[in-house]
Amino acid sequence: MFEKAVSLACAHLPALGFGVGLRRPHYSQVLEQHPPMDWFEVISENFMVPGGQPLKVLEGIRERYPVVFHGVSLSIGSTDPIRRGYLKSLASLARRFEPAWISDHLCWTGVGGRSLHDLLPLPYTDETLRHVVQRVRIVQEILGQPILLENVSSYFEFANATMSEWNFLATVAEEADCAILLDINNIFVSAFNHRFDPRVYIDAIPIGRVGQFHLAGHSDHGGYLLDTHDHPIREEVWRLYEQAVRRFGPVSTLIEWDDNIPEFSRLAAVADEARQRARTALG
């Protein structure tokens, strides 16, 4: 049923091409040399500060490149009240820098007024579905625009789950009318950790809802994979990406690298590889 759905959430999203996550070691190079790059994704919270260098950096980047905001603290699935102060601050930052879109994660990050500063999976039940859909609607109303929600990598699943993560994600997007940021590496990591076929996940996501892909590396801990963003993208993840491109078309794609961060030129080369692979996949 999702195949034919017309997504209002995705209708306004531009195709940005192939970008990378903006990280501190690359600030001065990007600001001074303006290397070719289609777009940058920035971590919203890094720039939700009163002033100083972070905002100056973002000003400089925004003058030359499209930017999208990617948050880690929305905690859309938490049972705590929605943090309106956080959303107001995010909305204010968005008014100033006009990102192409705002994304965060389909997860919870804390409860009882406490934060874990981690992206925890939800129990995929009807109760959680109703809860999340209602909160996404409120968030979109406060921000004045549809958001993209990203699938997280996870290491545990809840025993009381009554649906798969892919069905949950697709239903949330449909019922709340939000878009999806599909993290290909997270699908691969979770598929290994929870013993499912990652291709089934990709095939279950509604085509019109996907506004962005994430690609990243992970580390192998033997019994499980850890989503560390500190390694090159594995070939199996690239193949999954190609499958996703064939299914969803030329969706804006972003390379994430958060630890053992390489030279900018190497990161740009990975973005170019994504461009080549997408072109080949689309024939």
Binding site: L116, D118, Y155, F156, F158, A159, G223, Y224
Partner: peptide, 22 residues
């Protein structure tokens, strides 16, 4: 009480991954 696990990665170990990361 809350989680699924398996022989390869028991539920308690799965939870512990998050504690270590925290």
């Amino acid at each position: 009480r809350a989680l699924r696990g398996d022989v390869g990665l028991p539920a308690a170990r799965r939870l512990q991954i998050y504690t270590e990361a925290y």
